[in-house]
Design a protein around this nucleic acid. Structure first.
Length: 257
DNA sequence: ATGGTGGTCTTACCA
């Protein structure tokens, strides 16, 4: 079973990319972020015609998450305890026996912005939710755009990034707090190329110069870690015409025997 | 330090 995450930065623009990549990479599940579509504008038919079940939680212009799966999607959750938030950043569902929690973590803007404490509070509430979900669903994946680079190895130039959002110690501690619930970064279970990133700024030729960050993650519970065979960042779609600024991340799991 | 690009019911805001 292959499970992917991809921040598409507008599904309206990127729907052809998603369908093309789905044919190429044959994921069974794709968690999307930044669909930027209201639910009534969601291209459900195009996606079901491509052979996927789909659930989504969208809003106008900003945010928006969706899960595509070759299997039925059940027990859908879009809102969590103690977080009354109109922003659509959370989507959980069960598919083929695996609990999927798709997150679009707030960016945070800058350390002195109001959006920064919003991000940290959001992460605290989501951590409590994940803890609760882990008790109910031992086979669990938390994936998405975390907007946090876990370590300096995940940053093209750690010195340049010091003091910025996406790398600050409180953000990294919040991510570690999620991992401490019993989740592993599937990407780091395997040997990886140096300077592996999942996002490159559109500005200043970030992709061409590989000035990126690894901020998109697939975290796996202990039960799934044992079955995880591979995790890669697929840079191919980032080279296409009119790309998202993020590349998809794809993890492969052995079937339960 | 600045600003570069890209998306959106755009001319401001988000990333």
């Amino acid at each position: 079973m292959k499970i992917a995450t991809w921040n598409v930065n507008s599904l309206k623009v990127r729907l052809p990319h998603v369908l093309e990549w789905a044919q190429m990479a044959t994921p069974d599940v794709i968690a999307l972020q930044e669909t930027k579509l209201t639910d009534e504008n969601f291209p459900e038919t195009d996606i079901t015609d491509a052979g996927f079940h789909v659930v989504y939680a969208g809003q106008k212009t900003y945010n928006g998450v969706a899960i595509l799966s070759r299997y039925e999607l059940t027990d859908v959750v879009t809102d969590i305890p103690d977080l009354a938030d109109p922003q659509r950043r959370i989507l959980a569902a069960t598919t083929n026996g695996v609990r999927i929690i798709d997150l679009y973590v707030p960016n945070g803007a800058s350390l002195d912005s109001d959006k920064y404490p919003y991000k940290l509070n959001w992460l605290a509430k989501v951590t409590a939710f994940i803890q609760q979900q882990l008790q109910e669903y031992p086979e669990l994946v938390v994936l998405g755009d975390f907007n946090i680079a876990p370590a300096d190895d995940d940053v093209h130039d750690p010195t340049e990034w010091e003091g910025h959002v996406l790398v600050s110690p409180p953000e990294r501690e919040a991510l570690q707090g999620i991992m401490d619930l019993g989740l592993s970064d599937s990407f780091r279970l395997f040997e990886q190329p140096e300077k592996s990133f999942s996002w490159w700024d559109y500005r200043a030729a970030g992709f061409r110069r590989n000035r990126g960050l690894r901020i998109d993650h697939i975290l796996v519970s202990e039960a799934l870690k044992a079955r995880c065979k591979a995790c890669i960042i697929d840079k191919e779609p980032r080279k296409w015409e009119r790309p998202s600024d993020h590349a998809p991340v794809l993890a492969d799991f052995a079937s339960k025997t």
